[in-house]
Amino acid sequence: MNTEDLNFAYRVRHALNEKLDELPASTTDRLAAARQAAMARKKAHVPVRVTQSELATAGAGGFFSSPFNWLGRMSVAVPLLVLGVGMVGLYQYEEQQRIAELAELDAAVLSDELPLSAYLDNGFNAYLESSEQ
């Protein structure tokens, strides 16, 4: 219920209360009987009155408006946070593996007796491919 609805309800209640003394007795008796019938059909778990704090927070939907509302929100946020951290960790691990492989390749190339120009020669690449078979 938003503020406009509450204001409208208060204005209607005020207008009805102003003319309450002018109502005939038969109308007030019928209204009392209708109220009694409505109260008899009322569910047991529904409160009869609304407290002032409930009116103040109606429609507000604040973070701490209900005791376990924040728990429901955290049950969505925490798995998303864990997923994000896991993906960042996996990326870092893969990057470290790639760096280690490149460092191993560089160390093998630098410790070999062949000159670096031999690795750039197309004929040397053909020789390596034929020697692997």
Rank of each mutant, 00 (worst) to 15 (best):
L20P: 00
L6Y: 03
E101C: 06
T51G: 05
Q96T: 12
M39R: 09
A118L: 02
Q92P: 00
Q36C: 14
A9W: 07
E113L: 14
V109S: 08
R98K: 14
Q97F: 02
F63N: 02
S111V: 05
L116D: 11
A107S: 11
A56N: 11
Q133F: 07
L81W: 09
A32M: 08
M39S: 07
Q96G: 12
Q36L: 15
E95Y: 00
S130N: 13
R49S: 06
V50H: 00
W70V: 02
D106C: 03
A33I: 14
F68M: 10
V78I: 15
Q92A: 14
T57A: 09
Y93G: 03
D106V: 03
H45Y: 13
R11N: 08
R98P: 04
A107L: 13
A33F: 08
G61E: 03
A100Y: 02
L120A: 13
S75Y: 10
S75H: 12
E101F: 08
A126E: 09
D21N: 08
A108H: 07
Q96P: 03
E95K: 14
V48G: 01
S66F: 02
G62L: 13
D121A: 03
S26V: 05
V50Q: 00
V85F: 11
S131P: 01
E129S: 04
Y93K: 13
L20K: 15
D121Y: 03
A56K: 10
S111M: 05
V109D: 06
S65W: 04
F64A: 10
V12W: 07
T27N: 05
N2S: 04
N17W: 12
E4W: 10
F64H: 13
A9C: 10
V48T: 09
H14C: 05
T27H: 06
Y10A: 04
V48Q: 04
E22T: 10
L71K: 12
S26K: 15
T57C: 05
L83C: 06
M87N: 04
A40L: 10
P115K: 08
G72D: 10
A25S: 14
T3V: 03
R73G: 13
F63H: 06
A108F: 08
A77Y: 12
A100R: 12
Q92E: 05
L128V: 15
F63A: 04
G86H: 02
L16Y: 08
D106I: 09
D121E: 10
S65F: 09
S66V: 08
A32N: 06
D106W: 04
F8V: 01
E104G: 09
G59K: 01
A126P: 00
E101D: 14
V78H: 01
L80R: 13
S117V: 14
L31H: 03
A108M: 12
V85P: 00
S65H: 11
L20Y: 15
L128Y: 05
T3A: 11
L83D: 05
L55G: 01
L71N: 08
G84T: 09
R35T: 10
F63Q: 03
P24H: 11
L128M: 15
E54N: 10
A118H: 01
E95F: 00
T3P: 00
V88F: 06
L71P: 00
